[in-house]
């Protein structure tokens, strides 16, 4: 474990990075990057989430078993999305009457 002041400096750095990334994601949204806008927004959100998980939630200093459980949560989410979209991309869109 790091010392008292060092730990607080880490928290402040993470806090600053989270605010900075929030600003960047808003800035990016007002610029046209074509099909890349959404991947950039999701990439920034994933970066912010990783910072929170590693430093605020201390996963970095957790046991291997805890890390596996945390990773499993995200892995199952990935399965949920992949299998569902594997189905949806092969379908015709649902049409509302009159649209």
């Amino acid at each position: 474990m790091s010392s008292n002041a060092a730990q607080i400096r880490i928290y402040l750095a993470v806090f600053g990075a989270l605010l900075l990334f929030t600003g960047i994601t808003i800035w990016v949204a007002f610029h046209d990057y074509g099909p890349l806008n959404t991947p950039i927004a999701i990439g920034i959100a994933c970066t912010k989430a990783t910072l929170v998980v590693l430093y605020f939630m201390h996963l970095k200093d957790s046991t291997k078993l805890t890390k596996v459980i945390a990773a499993a949560g995200f892995f199952w989410l990935l399965i949920l999305f992949s299998l569902t979209f594997a189905d949806y991309v092969a379908r015709h869109p649902v049409r509302f009457p009159g649209s």
Binding site: L18, A29, H31, N37, A41, I44, A45, F56, M57
Partner: peptide
């Protein structure tokens, strides 16, 4: 703390996905 940070992470995804679509 773990719970509170998790709820924060959910919002970190909700904000760009709900508020920031096609603003340009």
């Amino acid at each position: 703390g773990l719970y509170w940070h998790f709820v924060d992470i959910v919002w970190i995804f909700l904000f760009p996905l709900l508020y920031l679509i096609g603003r340009h």
